[in-house]
Deep mutational scan, measured.
Amino acid sequence: MGMPNRKYADGEVVMGRWPGSVLYYEVQVTSYDDASHLYTVKYKDGTELALKESDIRLQS
């Protein structure tokens, strides 16, 4: 078993793309699913969504 190939840690605050949009919002990573390679993130309004790594970026 190798290390999970994840870029962002639980609790890390990053920018997540809103689905169907080009806009990124501040989100907190809450979990990562090794099987689906999706991150569960929480937006400031409390919305929780699963995002692909390509829809997440570090805060500038």
Rank of each mutant, 00 (worst) to 15 (best):
1 M>D: 15
1 M>Q: 15
2 G>Y: 04
2 G>W: 07
3 M>E: 14
3 M>F: 12
4 P>L: 12
4 P>C: 13
5 N>D: 13
5 N>T: 13
5 N>M: 11
6 R>D: 02
7 K>R: 08
7 K>H: 06
8 Y>R: 01
8 Y>P: 02
9 A>C: 09
9 A>P: 07
10 D>A: 06
12 E>F: 04
14 V>G: 02
14 V>F: 02
15 M>H: 07
15 M>D: 05
15 M>P: 01
16 G>P: 01
16 G>L: 10
16 G>S: 06
17 R>N: 03
17 R>S: 03
18 W>L: 10
18 W>I: 09
19 P>N: 06
19 P>S: 04
19 P>R: 14
20 G>C: 08
20 G>K: 05
21 S>R: 07
21 S>M: 06
21 S>V: 04
22 V>F: 13
22 V>Q: 14
23 L>W: 12
23 L>Q: 11
23 L>R: 11
23 L>Y: 12
24 Y>L: 04
25 Y>L: 11
25 Y>E: 08
25 Y>C: 12
25 Y>W: 08
25 Y>D: 05
26 E>N: 05
26 E>F: 08
26 E>G: 03
26 E>Y: 10
27 V>S: 03
28 Q>D: 02
28 Q>S: 09
28 Q>G: 02
29 V>K: 00
30 T>F: 09
30 T>Y: 08
32 Y>G: 00
32 Y>E: 00
32 Y>K: 01
33 D>Y: 02
33 D>S: 08
34 D>S: 11
35 A>C: 10
35 A>E: 13
36 S>Y: 08
36 S>P: 01
37 H>S: 12
37 H>G: 15
38 L>G: 02
38 L>A: 05
38 L>D: 04
38 L>M: 13
39 Y>E: 00
40 T>R: 11
41 V>N: 00
42 K>R: 14
42 K>I: 12
42 K>C: 08
43 Y>T: 14
43 Y>D: 08
44 K>Q: 10
44 K>G: 08
44 K>Y: 10
45 D>I: 03
45 D>H: 04
45 D>W: 10
45 D>A: 03
47 T>P: 05
47 T>C: 10
48 E>R: 08
48 E>K: 10
49 L>P: 00
49 L>V: 10
49 L>T: 07
49 L>S: 06
50 A>R: 15
50 A>C: 14
50 A>H: 14
52 K>R: 13
52 K>V: 09
52 K>C: 11
52 K>F: 11
52 K>N: 10
53 E>T: 04
54 S>A: 11
55 D>T: 02
55 D>H: 07
56 I>H: 01
56 I>R: 01
56 I>E: 00
57 R>I: 11
57 R>V: 10
57 R>K: 13
58 L>M: 13
58 L>E: 14
58 L>S: 15
59 Q>I: 14
59 Q>E: 10
60 S>M: 12
